[in-house]
Amino acid sequence: MVEEKIVADQSSARPVALITGASRGIGQSSAVAMAEAGFDIVGFSQSGDSGNSETCRLVNLAGGAYVTHKVNVAVESDVRSAFRSLLTANGRRLHAVVVSAGITSDGLAATMSADRFDSVIAVNLRGTFLVCREAIKAMRKTGGAIVLLSSTSGVSGQAGQVNYSASKGGVNAMTQALAKEVAGLGIRVNAVAPGFTETDMFRRMDVKARNGLIQHIPLQRVAKPEEVARAVRFLATEESSYITGQILPVDGGLTA
């Protein structure tokens, strides 16, 4: 079983970072960036990717061990049991948690079904809460850092994305509330708010809409996931030891 790899490696002095949505996109790049910074990685994704996945290969190349769990972050029992097996099997301290699992399901508000609205809130907001709740307990004695993935849509709102914008606005407020609640435990909580970033999520957008967007970005291009991941790494490590409750835009100047 893949999980056993890290069990066998209990003696490792490398810190451990948990990353949700690690199978692709910003989560994958964050896993690599954290491995480069000396972390071993535990990845959560819906597909569970695998010990042979691209994320695993890239993390290993960067010198880190990679373990993956199949978790739907919107399902409470999934999150709870993944944390339980992670903590009991692993026996190692969790130093950082990056919550990158997220979805879009765009549509105009007037015709958006309640189910479509709920599905995005369930993954992006409830899922973030469920992961944070377990992370706090796991890090309660040692402290650590939590980094949430927000979006510029959560700051200024995006037409056609009422569900997504609301979920990310919620993530921003959660970042600030949680930062205050757990600061006394030595846990810092921050968010990164990317603008348009070249991942599957962005590639799913209509080509005309994508091209139209670029002219509104002062830097005249979308972000590479590695550029977002560097901000994630900054907030997830001691480099940002006096920063908590902040939302860091990585958006090429879009919200400037």
Partner: peptide, 18 residues
């Protein structure tokens, strides 16, 4: 209230009770 967090965590870690 900090003790609540500790008890809740201990009950889960030591006895599997959520």
């Amino acid at each position: 209230s900090l003790d609540t967090l500790e008890i809740v965590s201990l009950m889960e870690e030591d006895f599997g009770v959520y």
